[in-house]
Simulated assay, not measured.
Amino acid sequence: MPVNEVQGVVSRAKGAPVELVPILVPDPSEGEALVRVQACGVCHTDLHYREGAINDEFPFLLGHEAAGVVEKVGPDVSNVQPGDFVILAWRAPCGNCRSCLRGRPWHCFASRNAQQKMTLADGAPLSPALGIGAFCELTLVDALQAVKVDPSASPLAAGLIGCGVMAGLGAAMNTGNVGRGDSVAVIGCGGVGNAAIAGSRLAGAHTIIAVDIDDRKLEWARGFGATHTVNSTQTDAVDAIRALTGGNGVNVAIEAVGNPVTYEQAFYARDLAGTVVLVGVPDPTMKIELPLIEVFGRGGSLKSSWYGDCLPTRDFPMLIDLYLQGRLDLDAFVSERIGIGDVEAAFASMERGEVLRSVVVM
């Protein structure tokens, strides 16, 4: 099988700075696609991989929020062909697991990935982040991970749908079932939280309350559709949300931080029979304690949103159409364009809260 040598961003050890090194990418075999990456966002999940917070299967080929053009396909591939502009999805429903067979492919428990391994130059196999690995010029994925969308979309904006933007939008629209006239609170206004705000606005929410500890992020939130903002270092978040909703709390509270303190805020900030959606990714060591009578007495739903409960083949093209119609400002999520050698610096900018998304442009 022919092999392609390209440059890729690799994390070799827990906490160590990432490196730009030669990697080997095989041509696609059955059911696979080789994609030439045009742009890839720097997501907090990539930093989780570098820090060993996902698993310890080093070395990792980082990057997963990507858009590009199909270069080659293997045998028995019918959903895409060379030249197609695609967004890469880390969920590609298998069609055969118990969730898919129940008609819930957005919860697929056996999502498809490429069977061949990308490797370092010495042949050591790489673990691609979220089954993608797109901080490189070419990446190998299962063909069903490549979702064809309108090629007139900007690759920088389109790639962000592949993870963070879809997670936030889906947390509101799919998991939270935000509807016309609803009130929503979003706690944590980074990329995912602001996408949840944008999704709530698209879904017709009447009141959208953004909560954060950073006034700069709250200003971003207003741009995405927040009707009210709360700096929780200056006022109690739950009291403020209740005051803005007639003392009742919101219909849907979306926690986009992944922290016990902010989850408890979301829990108490919702109205009776309201919904809490956890989309922030917590540290595995974190725990939460709630009075069981409050869980019972408040009713409603406590949900976790996996990838915005999305179905990529349904949702990616729809969101790109909304973007091209001017109804979803994906460009506003792009804080800066960077080169493939600038990922480590982008992690530092992310940790300082200076950006929504740095995007690697190939």
Results as ranks from 00 to 15, higher is better:
M1I: 04
V9S: 01
K14Y: 01
A16V: 10
E19F: 03
P22L: 05
I23M: 01
V25E: 02
P28E: 00
E32I: 04
L34A: 03
L34E: 00
V37I: 14
H44G: 10
T45L: 04
D46N: 11
H48S: 08
R50S: 14
E51F: 12
A53E: 14
N55R: 11
N55D: 15
D56W: 10
G68Q: 09
V69N: 12
V69Y: 08
D76E: 13
N79A: 06
Q81P: 04
P82K: 02
P82I: 00
D84N: 11
W90M: 06
A92Y: 05
G95C: 09
N96F: 14
N96G: 12
R98K: 13
C100E: 01
R104H: 07
H107T: 06
S111R: 04
S111K: 03
S111P: 14
R112G: 00
N113G: 10
A114V: 02
Q115T: 09
T119F: 01
A121S: 13
A121Q: 11
G123Q: 01
A129W: 04
L130Y: 12
G131N: 04
G133K: 03
A134E: 04
E137V: 08
E137F: 08
V141K: 07
D142M: 08
A143P: 05
Q145C: 15
K148A: 13
V149P: 14
D150Y: 09
A153G: 12
L156H: 06
A158Q: 05
A158M: 07
A158G: 08
L160N: 07
V165M: 06
M166P: 10
M166H: 10
L169H: 10
L169I: 14
L169D: 10
A172H: 03
T175V: 11
G179D: 14
D182H: 12
D182K: 07
V184R: 02
V184H: 04
A185K: 05
G190H: 04
G190C: 07
G191C: 07
G191M: 01
V192K: 01
G193K: 01
A195Y: 00
A195L: 01
I197P: 00
R201E: 06
T207Q: 06
I208Y: 02
A210Q: 02
D212F: 03
D214L: 11
K217I: 09
L218Y: 06
A221Y: 04
F224M: 09
A226R: 01
A226V: 03
A237H: 12
T245W: 14
T245K: 13
N251L: 09
A256D: 02
A256L: 05
A266R: 00
F267V: 05
Y268M: 07
R270L: 02
D271A: 11
L272Y: 10
V277A: 06
V279S: 00
V279L: 05
G280F: 00
P282I: 06
K287S: 14
E289G: 05
E289S: 13
L290W: 05
P291N: 01
I293G: 03
I293M: 11
G297F: 08
R298A: 07
G300D: 03
G300K: 00
S304Y: 10
D309R: 03
D315F: 03
P317Y: 06
L322V: 09
L324N: 13
Q325N: 14
Q325T: 12
G326H: 11
G326D: 09
R327F: 10
F333A: 04
V343F: 07
A346S: 15
A348K: 15
S349E: 15
M350A: 15
E351M: 15
G353F: 15
V355M: 07
L356E: 11
S358W: 02
V360A: 11
V361L: 13
M362Y: 13
